[in-house]
Design a protein around this nucleic acid. Structure first.
Length: 295
DNA sequence: GGTAGACCTGGACGC
DNA sequence: GCGTCCAGGTCTACC
């Protein structure tokens, strides 16, 4: 078991619930513990199970089977997925004395759980659009079960399908078996663009291009609109835009407009002062509306 | 640039 | 059990 340190402060349990990704395959909660596992397909095609547990100031990582020569690959993967090297110091300095955000500093929250690849991030995000959360879970599960490579030790566990597999899939079969509906050609086209080299999605992780440029690149993907682009930007560690969905409109409406109908402009305006941390401020805001609806 | 309608599915609801 | 309606973002055609 290997320990990886995080840039502090770090809150593992809160990272797992930072958004819904932990509930989507091939992430899986480890029964009877606070750990999480992820079934990963390595670059050479081997499938491993990676168990990640809380280590206080970082995480413990266990790869099964323990393959020699892959320590660095797995370390980089986990560092990225759990945002271990993300420095939120500047955001914390802004949030520290703010009544709606001081809790992020006190609790060491603000990181978002990621997928190992931007391709997987985008496919999952496309599958969150125009559907309920239960629909997203169903579609992702069907994709993984239908097209993911199995872990040899337990074939019930499968990795997320590669772009190569989704690029050459039978569209009608994908549409029906995974229930992706009209999203089917979007996922297939994205996979084809990755395989053909038209898009270098993984290069976006460490790109030095301005956020607006990356946003335009994301918006050029069929099925990715403003909400989806902003969501993926957040997962890339860029918080200049807010993923405005119907829920965001509801929250802002109740927080600042007494329940009156609002649009994207009002949401952006509400967080204008947070500059390049806008998205994160929105995401972890202490919403009055949530307290009301939770009773 | 703005707007309306279509896309697709599952769940809620009424009968 | 069946039919209808609705919610959820994005795309496309049209103005």
């Amino acid at each position: 078991m290997k320990k990886l340190h995080a840039i502090g402060p770090f809150n593992f349990p809160r990272l797992l619930v930072s958004h819904g990704w932990a509930k989507l395959a091939p992430y899986q909660k480890v029964e009877g513990s606070s750990s999480i596992s992820y079934t990963a397909q390595l670059n050479d095609g081997q499938v491993v199970e990676i168990k990640v547990s809380d280590a206080g100031d970082g995480v413990y990582v266990e790869m099964m089977p323990q393959l020699a020569g892959y320590e660095e690959v797995v370390r980089d993967m986990i560092n990225w997925m759990f945002s271990l090297q993300q420095d939120l110091g500047e955001f914390y300095n802004m949030a520290r004395d703010h009544p709606k955000l001081s809790h992020v500093v006190e609790q060491g929250i603000g990181r978002l759980l990621r997928c190992p690849s931007v391709f997987e991030e985008l496919v999952k995000t496309i599958l969150t659009t125009n559907t309920r959360w239960t629909g997203t879970i169903r579609m992702v599960d069907a994709l993984v079960q239908g097209y993911g490579k199995p872990w040899p030790d337990n074939v019930q566990k499968r990795a997320f399908p590669t772009p190569e597999v989704l690029a050459r899939v039978d569209l009608e079969k994908l549409r029906k078996s995974a229930g992706l509906g009209y999203r089917t050609p979007y996922v297939n086209a994205l996979a084809q663009d990755v395989v053909s080299g038209v898009r270098d999605l993984e290069g976006l992780k460490h790109s030095e291009h301005p956020t607006e440029e990356i946003r335009k690149e994301l918006l050029s993907i069929k099925g990715v609109g403003e909400y989806a682009a902003a969501s993926v930007l957040m997962l890339l560690g860029r918080f200049d835009f807010i993923p405005v969905d119907s829920w965001a409109l509801r929250l802002v409406s109740h927080e600042w407009h007494a329940g009156a109908q609002v649009g994207q402009d009002e949401v952006e305006e509400a967080f204008q002062t947070w500059g390049s941390w806008k998205g994160l401020a929105y995401w972890f805001w202490d919403w009055e509306y949530l307290k009301e609806t939770e009773g």
